[in-house]
Amino acid sequence: MNIVACVKQVPDTEAAIKVKPDGSGIEEAGIKWVMNPYDEFGVEEALKLKEKFGGDVTIVSVGPARALETIRTALAMGADKGIHINDPALEGADAYNIAAALAAAIKGIPHDIIFCGQRAIDDDAGQVGSVLAEFLGIPQVTFVTKLDVEGASIKVIRPIEGAQLLIQSSLPCVVTAQKGLNEPRYASLPGIMKAKKKPVDVKDAAGLGVTVAPKAKIAKTLPPPARPPGKIICGEEPAEKARELAKLLREEAKVI
């Protein structure tokens, strides 16, 4: 089984995000970069399938030079090879263009299942997996928390509001991973050593035959809207504070 896992390098979840004064983006200085947590679930699932069925796991990432660390992390976890798409024109590009570049790279390699995170925790757009599936002309199953391969198809669990769905899809297919799918492994020390020698192909848009033509842009980045200062409710006893809170929620906020 040939598997592709797409990964993106993003700021760590604990990172404080500072907006540039001119609103052109965020300050990157001091940020710790990690693999997007949802992509980690994809890589882990890819490795589990490889262990079960054999085959190759290819990691594909679009990003600047530093994104290579994230590809190496996935290789250290056990993936076989990487494709690093590094092109300034794709920096901060919209989902359509990112997916076009990924599709161009993936078309050239055998693929039964392609994993993406359900979204990246930086821009939170959550579009690339589905647009990639469209470019490749294959089905998608998104927000997957369980996956089983059955012959030439897969069965997955996808939670929705108030229910979960058991969905069958033909292969090849794009699967977007949701938390709950698995527990990603840590890279072992021998894994890290081996990863250094695994092949990573570096490509740019032209090399992939892709012309970058923006469809959407972030015109401005702003700090989150300020909240008015809150009220600390004082009182002698918990009961007194609770009474005051209930009253405020009822009469001032009018939410109960």
């Binding site: 939170d124 401005k220 702003l222």
Partner: peptide, 19 residues
């Protein structure tokens, strides 16, 4: 012009779609 939280609400973005 669409206003949306990014970085899970650590900042907001104003998005313009040209297509």
């Amino acid at each position: 012009i669409s206003i949306r939280p990014m970085y899970a609400g650590k900042c907001n973005g104003e998005i313009v779609v040209s297509a």
